[in-house]
Design a protein around this nucleic acid. Structure first.
Lengths: 246, 246
DNA sequence: CGCGCCTTTGAAGGAGCTCAATTTAGGTGG
DNA sequence: CCACCTAAATTGAGCTCCTTCAAAGGCGCG
């Protein structure tokens, strides 16, 4: 396992992040806000932080103070249960917000670990709350983002509760593909940033099963896999796999 | 399946609900608010609605306008996927809030169905947002409730992704027991309001498996089951089941 | 170039599912 | 109040899909 070596707390580097100029603003917190409201956000998000591959944006148990928007790179969040169980709860790409699960207990329940060299915008939550008291559009948007997280967790529950291995992998690939598209990347060709084990953990499967299903998909001509490099050759067929649960 | 007959929209009965006098206020939205803030909530929650067993508090696809606090009774929420899949996403008892997943799309993604004769407080969401702009404590509390929902969905993901059938059932019973306790009921003796099939749907198991595991627990002396009536005889042993995933 | 980690693939085993039959409980109408 | 009817629950037997255990191959990095 990478990322287990002690990571020194980096002094957060004070760089103006300028949501107003960020090309992710349509995917991130500012989406749907007026120019003025985005300016207010700018004033709030003053700190960006780099995380090299394997480093943490935050750790389970850390006091909750901020949300973290992925500005570049790729993260996983890892839930550590009291009984030693350990599961990937999500993968997060540029424009996505991490840390909402920390609000309820004032502690982060999970680790956020960079799967490649990455950068996050640090968003002090109490200042975000302040601002959203004054800007109803921002308030509503924040609520939508939290609600979207609930919805997406529930659809993972559905996946874990009722899908077979092939369906899970198909849904996973289609989800990734769709998120890549939203970011202007190719929907059909990309590099996986995570290992088979991490995919398996997220999908409730063993790494061998993930590997086998990938091979099966490749034999069937749905995808072309070469280690971490994936090309999706037949999106409709992948969709059909999910639909055909007799 | 019960609850499939057409349910006429009940005219919401206008009853002052008075959070300030509700004995669930420590579990529900008002928890942690000052007297004055609770009064403000009172002014907002003017409508209660009765749902007889099988009736809906809201339906998947309905426009999102309000949150629903369970005032009495017991609900399940049921997610209906586009591909005909269908899964119970949660069970909700008195004092718990339903409908947060509707904020993101302005439509409820799931059905909320009463599993016994029940009553809900209808909380107009835009008025709740208004009020929470003026009352920081309420704002923070709302955020905590939403975050708690995220955390609890994630712990279901963990359950579905990494636990075996016995562990899932043990966790399920302990969770129910703990919620009963918080409401002043016996932690060890209660009636299940849902069927084996609904439990199975929630836990990603088939109803036969649920039944078999209950029988096994009974043979082992951990619980006493008689249809829907459950007595938990050995809470530590149930806890141990979850811990012992070799 | 060698080492470690990740991935692939095979074979055997097991947990939970499917199919099926029986029992029990709860609601309804005579 | 009892008989009936339907929905829910229990239990068994065989099967399937995924896991476990094991070994070999490939890629990247020092």
């Amino acid at each position: 396992m990478t990322g287990l070596k002690a990571v020194p707390k980096l002094d957060p580097e004070s760089i103006k992040s300028a949501c107003s100029k960020c090309n992710l603003r349509e995917l991130c917190l500012p989406s749907g806000l007026s120019g003025e409201e985005v300016d207010q956000l700018d004033s709030l998000i003053r700190v960006r932080r780099f995380c090299r591959k394997g480093e943490h944006a935050y750790r389970g148990g850390d006091q909750f103070e901020s949300l973290y928007a992925v500005r570049a790179g790729f993260f996983k969040t890892n839930l550590l249960n009291e009984d030693g169980r350990d599961q990937v709860t999500g993968f997060h790409m540029a424009g996505e917000l991490m840390g909402l699960d920390g609000i309820s207990t004032d502690n982060h329940p999970c680790d956020a670990i960079a799967l490649e060299d990455s950068e996050v915008c640090v968003i002090p939550f109490s200042r975000l709350e302040e601002l959203s008291r004054e800007a109803p559009a921002l308030q509503r948007h924040l609520h939508k983002i939290m609600s979207r997280e609930i919805v997406s967790d529930q659809s993972v529950m559905m996946l874990l509760g009722s899908m077979r291995a092939e369906e899970r992998l198909a849904a996973f690939l289609l989800n990734l593909s769709q998120r890549m598209t939203a970011r202007g990347y190719s929907p059909s060709e990309f590099n996986l940033r995570m290992t088979r084990e991490e995919i398996g953990s997220y999908l409730g499967l063993k790494l061998e099963t993930v590997s086998r299903v990938f091979s099966r998909f490749q034999n069937d001509g749905f995808i072309a896999v070469q280690q971490k490099h994936i090309r999706i050759l037949d999106i409709p067929k992948l969709r059909a796999i999910i639909g055909q649960h007799c």
